[in-house]
Design a binder for these strands. Structure first.
Lengths: 253, 253
DNA sequence: CGACCACTTGAGCTCGCTCAAGACTAGTGG
DNA sequence: CCACTAGTCTTGAGCGAGCTCAAGTGGTCG
């Protein structure tokens, strides 16, 4: 994973797609606009980085540690440097929905209503985060509009991710959701080894079920079916070898 | 509907929730930050409005008219003034997902990838839109950072809407989704008469089904069940009287 | 009046949920 | 070293919500 190294001298924020608002892409970035590197990741300018580092704190968290709870007062934004974070939402009826997984480079903590967090955030693995106080950030925005532009791009990126998730969850057949989930994970260098096509699942079956809107039993059964059909191979419950081509074909039909 | 009147001298953008990034709410808005009116709607400053009107065009569309297609080059952002817009996404497998309905005051057209629209937009009713060219908007952002701030707030608002939709669709029982959908519509002055508690559905059953991830038959049956239970009353297929209290109770259980 | 469209209702089947038991791993203590 | 426990994952059996296919209803327009 090259986006968001632990090196504080270079903070990268993932911006997988393009946003016309950010100016032309694929061409030389505007000197005055946010800059995008070759891999499509957003790179904040050195000056902005310095400004950010002046208000940011790096925090380290243990596997499973809560970062904030649903309903907590929202005082900080976070950027994942290392590890992964689980965003979840508790429904009135008691069910739990995993809203997103945040990977290195992702920004989270901005989804608030009435100054309180709409979702809970938990460290999924041991992880390292950059913590940005809202107040200082807003003040920085006034001095540095480009920074605000970067956050706008990041917000649009979250929106795309959210929509992808929606489309995944509304796939009628659960087996397609599971296949889609595996493909989604395969895009994360943090947990997918491209050389061996092996996926390391950092979340348990219950997280996957809550992410896909199904049950752990169904997830397990779907993995079984996919394995029968030769699309995946379970080395052990947390390590799965994928046949990306077959999985993609399944999703398209 | 007080948000987004047709009067071009006052353009309101809905920002239903609060975003700490935008500064404190419920208190006097910062003179330098985006302003939020009493009903929580974002109000652009007169100067910004003037600037926006210099680059914007008002367009009028007939019921059903396409605004843009999925995959089209994204050149404009739009704000709904009057009427409603349907955002839909065609999946590889041929299914059609309604991603959102846009109401007066909503901003849309910003969800793009590689400079092309991720979704299609169609006028659901006769409607009136403000069209903003991307390029000019970006140039305006450089001159007027507050404007960009407003768009950031609007982006966060879309994210909240998108998450609400996700939670609605993953509610296990379809009947709850339908109830939730009706309640959601009841929040739109465009189609809900608070005096008579009557909802005017501007979309057909197929749109509702595609929005909720189900089928037209199931939507119809659910409406039947809700009617049997006295929670709603179908005057005709497109006019439904709601018992808001009962519907809310159903959703919470 | 008939054609067409959107909506409703019916009947049967299937996918996925529920409840329940079994398998595997890791940690603990004798 | 082997129970014993506890946690996670897998597998099984039965049932029911919702999908599919199909027919029926009502409204609109030529």
């Amino acid at each position: 994973m090259n986006a968001a190294t632990g090196d504080s001298s270079a903070l990268h924020i993932r911006a997988p797609g393009t946003l016309p608002l950010a100016g032309p892409q694929g061409t030389t970035p505007l000197p005055t606009g946010p800059q995008v590197d070759s891999s499509g990741n957003l790179v904040l300018s050195p000056a902005t980085l310095a400004a950010l580092s002046s208000i940011s704190t790096t925090v380290r968290l243990k596997d499973g540690a809560p970062i904030f709870h649903q309903g907590d007062t929202a005082d900080f934004l976070y950027v994942v440097l290392k590890g992964a974070v689980r965003m979840s939402h508790q429904l009135e009826d008691g069910r739990n929905q995993i809203v997103a997984f945040e990977w290195p480079g992702d920004l989270f903590g901005g989804l608030v209503e009435q100054d309180t967090h709409l979702n809970a955030a938990n460290a999924l693995t041991d992880c390292q985060l950059v913590r940005l106080p809202h107040g200082a950030l807003v003040r920085l925005f006034e001095k540095d509009p480009q920074l605000q532009g970067s956050f706008l791009i990041e917000a649009m990126s979250s929106l795309r991710t959210s929509q992808r998730h929606l489309l995944l969850v509304t796939h009628q057949r659960v087996i397609k959701r599971v296949a889609g989930f595996l493909l989604e994970c395969s895009g994360q260098p943090t947990c997918f080894n491209t050389a061996t096509n092996t996926l390391t699942l950092i979340m348990d079956r219950s997280d996957i079920a809550d992410y896909l809107g199904t049950t752990i039993e169904t997830v397990s059964r779907c993995l079984g079916t996919l394995e029968e059909q030769g699309m995946i191979q379970r080395m052990d419950p947390r390590h799965i070898r994928l046949d990306l081509t077959c999985l993609r074909r399944l999703l398209a039909e």
